[in-house]
């Protein structure tokens, strides 16, 4: 059983959605790892290129996944990124929030990879 003692994430909502069978749960974890890594990359590229639409779209897509994987403490942060990017306002705040998001999400991703031997 994966070790979730680090509290980097929890799967309560995922379980309520798809049940606790290890096979499907691992499948979802794989999809999350792949898509969240890609979306974080999109956000990062977006800030480098000042492409706010890209940032807004990636943040919008990432938001429900974070909720499902119990990284819900980042909800307000990602919402701020999405809204400010959509309105092309507060670029500094966006940058700041993206850093916060990366600092929170990267260890969670690492933990998940370790827990599921991925």
């Amino acid at each position: 059983m994966p070790n979730q003692a680090s509290n980097q994430y929890h799967l309560t909502k995922l379980y309520s959605f798809i049940g606790e069978e290890p096979g499907p749960v691992k499948e979802m974890v794989v999809i999350f790892l792949q898509s969240s890594t890609e979306l974080l990359q999109d956000i990062s590229t977006g800030i480098t290129l000042q492409d706010f639409e890209k940032i807004s779209k990636a943040a919008h897509k990432l938001k429900p996944s974070l909720d499902i994987f119990g990284i819900d403490d980042m909800y307000d942060t990602i919402r701020e990124i999405e809204l400010n990017a959509r309105n092309k306002t507060n670029p500094d705040l966006i940058k700041q929030r993206i850093d916060q998001l990366e600092n929170r999400l990267k260890p969670a991703i690492l933990q998940m990879r370790e827990d599921y031997s991925l």
Binding site: F17, M28, K61, P64, S65
Partner: peptide
Amino acid sequence: EDDPLYGEMLKHHLSL
């Protein structure tokens, strides 16, 4: 659904 996670989750859930 273009969000692969959400799409797969819904698919799995409804296929129950």
